[in-house]
Design a protein around this nucleic acid. Structure first.
Lengths: 123, 123
DNA sequence: GGGAGGACTGGCCACCCGGCCAGTTTCGCA
DNA sequence: TGCGAAACTGGCCGGGTGGCCAGTCCTCCC
């Protein structure tokens, strides 16, 4: 069938590491049906670095901590989280405390930022 | 040098759109020197969707607000921000208030999350 | 010269946050 | 069967946060 519909995928490279970026550009540049985005062009998808700094899973958050963390990322207060999860504010504080500890954060804002950086949560 | 170090690039697909993900998987699956990551495998880079929310600067934050925002994302308290920027805590609160307003956030955590989502700051 | 906006500062105050102490139940596992 | 981990709850309290009021300096622009 003729490819007049040309479902060509435009990919952007967003890689800091020059070496890796170069290799990717070389490899991806020769793939039919795929094109690297021109500077400033709007791409359909991007290739981003998945840096090797402490990958998740070694953080080991409990399910409940994940619940609390997700609501924290929404900007919810302890009171709101308590209401949402049907637990007391004290319990929320308990989980928040564990999160600050495990994520090595100084406060809830820092905790959310750290978690997002490590891919534990998605903003 | 010989290629015993096998510089094979491991790519992860993090695309929500099933159609796009499928096409990418097909295209990228046949590229020599490149491999798609197995589920759970640590990838060197990821292919992510470049959603159309082009993050325009319609938010219009002042330079000072950006300064404060950046430090907020680091988990800094108002006091720390004041010290860092050599201004009073009151002024920091003033800027934080403007930030909450402009970013439509309920608190500093929410503000940082919103800003990160819109690409105003990088975590 | 007068207005508008930005940056900056102060006081005051209700509320929230995080850390400390203490306790309970439930569950899985050795 | 006992023991640890997880989840849950309470009181207390110092300090942080955010919203309100007020004001002073600038600079840019009509």
């Amino acid at each position: 069938m003729s490819e007049d519909t040309t479902p060509e995928i435009v990919l952007a490279l967003e890689i800091d590491d020059p070496a890796l970026a170069d290799r990717l550009a070389t490899l991806l540049g020769n793939v039919a049906g795929l094109r690297l985005a021109a500077p400033g062009e709007t791409a359909m998808a991007s290739v981003v670095a998945r840096d090797p700094r402490v990958m998740p899973e070694d953080i080991a958050l409990t399910q409940r901590e994940l619940d609390v963390l997700a609501l924290m990322a929404e900007g919810a207060s302890n009171k709101m989280i308590a209401r949402q999860l049907n637990i007391s504010v004290h319990t929320v504080k308990f989980h928040v405390g564990s999160l600050l500890d495990k994520l090595d954060a100084t406060g809830r804002t820092d905790a959310v930022a750290h978690a997002a950086r490590r891919g534990v949560i998605e903003l």
